[in-house]
Design a protein around this nucleic acid. Structure first.
Lengths: 332, 332
DNA sequence: AATCTTCCAGAGAGCGCTCTCACAGCTTCG
DNA sequence: CGAAGCTGTGAGAGCGCTCTCTGGAAGATT
């Protein structure tokens, strides 16, 4: 690799001073057109690209932002399109803003402190924490240290932490209301873990609608895995054999429920209607294809990016979710 | 945020020169124990962390490495655990080596050049290109420019490019042999795109085994999507209604095939056995659960990382795949 | 005892860039 | 016609760090 040209070389070739070359490159308006032209030509000819390290050293900016995933949830990476969507959205915005995305997987004790050190020492201009557990202490710590932080998902111990979240409550309400509209009467729920905001909120949505309709709520709690969905469904069938619909707090559990129902000889949607949440790819492949609530993950990534970049008000943002109706809730 | 302490401060507090403080921090052995002690104490007391920009400026190293995903394949992110696994493996190794992972999604014309510029200008110490298309020109360009590059998946226009790949041929052979062992006689294949190395190699594996067994190969080509799997399966059934097994080049297409078979009234595995490739989560949820070939994605990530860091011989590495037997290939 | 090594610490240069400040050339106005 | 105001350019000081080079003290060798 031939030596990279420096600003000095560019200036020399353009016949100007380093300062002026710098001005042109950083888009200052106070430069005479022909000089600007000359510098730009020199840049092109030499294939000059600024040395980020040197620039950072003086500007005190890193021009890069960390996106932190807690390792446990990263396990789900493969099953859950949320992360992929967020990454895509974030990248798009960063590309426009010319920032780099530094991906960090935290979770173990060591890596956790590593993220903290890394972030609190000017290596990045901000941090996006994509934590599923609202109780993750990392965001608060970083915020206290003065690092711009944005959370994906409402943090439970939110002081003033800015966050972007999906409308989990609204999505759940919409889903359950849909079941009522389709004539279902005894609607059970398979809730998610109650230490995760998504788990709590989706159950809240379910309860809200049933309370309004004067119906009894029947709840089993799972842990967002398929297996837990199967187990929860079995419990629900044992508790209330008459149920004719289930709202699962995520698709994976809904898929598990589908299996339990099949094993129990119940037809879907004939005997029991099923709704999930997330709209993972497998939902549309399921037998029958699953009605579910779609989340605007890419949009979420874009918001996260713009907020951490300061392009957007730092208040909480809640993005709307959308009901996707498929076979599993066809009218009985 | 209070001002970060500099090396100068640390040195002053420890009562030594900047140079000596630097030596201690960078682990030079040639420092007297009590001085080393004093410096370390000062570092702790001040919470000092080296400024990476300043360090990079002089060392010409960035201590970070880019992981480039081509945008088109990123779409698959959600469906394909490969990327998640690779990311996890890479992160683990980088954490140990104290390198940062800069994630870049390329694919559009603009972002493509952006990656090139970014990488060829010392912002990163190396690049891992996770391209699905073996014909991606990026790795070769970077290599020519002197940037350490490692490809995930064998590049077709491989000059001397180091790469890490899965044993696609071997995995496919194993899968098809498994079908023969289970007594299947007319084994069709749903191939992947023939401009992708994975698509080509898996078909090769299939052909190898059938050639050896003197059986006729029956092939339909899909594009790795579920829908194409369904369509391909329909064609195969029309062409050869007698077939009793199908090898699909990935799980998504196998899932699609399952649907076509169900629609055609064929039972699986009663009438037709089905094997997939990848072992995506949905494979085990399928009805019936899918026999498939598992890939060591995390291991792949680790190899990629170690190779780009120069901790490993830069030759090609091919990782073994593993057959996972489930319901879909039970003996007829 | 004198010289040669060896070892450790400090001085200082400089990585490539931005940004403040000073200044030269020009217009504008009293 | 000279003072004042602009505008555009250059000079130069660092940003925080590493690393070479030098020197002095201590130990080894003759």
């Amino acid at each position: 690799m031939r030596a990279r040209p420096t600003l000095e070389k560019v200036a020399a070739r353009a016949g100007v001073s380093r300062a002026t070359a710098s001005r042109v490159i950083n888009g200052s308006t106070r430069v005479a057109p022909q000089i600007r032209e000359a510098v730009n030509r020199a840049v092109d000819e030499l294939g000059y690209v600024p040395n980020q390290a040197a620039r950072s050293l003086v500007t005190q900016r890193a021009d890069s932002i960390a996106l932190v995933f807690p390792e446990p949830s990263t396990r789900v990476f493969s099953d859950d399109p949320t992360f992929g969507g967020i990454i895509r959205g974030v990248s798009m915005e960063f590309e426009e803003a010319d920032k780099q995305l530094v991906l960090m997987l935290a979770g173990t004790e060591g890596s956790y402190r590593r993220v903290e050190r890394y972030a609190t020492n000017g290596h990045v201009d901000g941090v996006i924490v994509a934590s599923m557990h609202g109780s993750d202490p990392l965001p608060a710590i970083l915020a206290r240290r003065g690092v711009p932080v944005v959370c994906s998902g409402r943090p439970t111990m939110a002081g003033e932490l800015p966050y972007v979240d999906m409308d989990n409550v609204g999505g759940a309400e919409r889903a359950v209301r849909h079941l009522l509209e389709r004539g279902r009467r005894r609607i059970a729920a398979i809730a998610g873990p109650q230490d995760m905001v998504a788990g709590i909120d989706r159950l809240t949505g379910y309860r809200n609608v049933l309370r309004d309709s004067d119906r009894r709520s029947i709840v089993a709690v799972g842990d967002f895995t398929r297996e837990s969905g199967t187990a929860a469904m079995r419990h629900l069938l044992a508790d209330d054999p008459e149920l004719d619909a289930v709202f699962a707090a995520n698709d994976l559990m809904a898929l598990g429920a589908l299996r339990a129902l099949r094993d129990a000889g119940r037809s879907v949607p004939g005997d029991v209607a099923v709704v999930g949440f997330d709209d993972i790819p497998a939902a549309s492949y399921a037998e029958p294809p699953l009605t579910t609530v779609r989340q605007p993950t890419e949009e979420m990534g874009r918001w996260l990016a713009r907020m951490v970049l300061g392009l957007e008000e730092r208040g909480p943002v809640v993005l709307p979710t959308e009901l996707v109706v498929r076979e599993s809730t066809r009218a009985a």
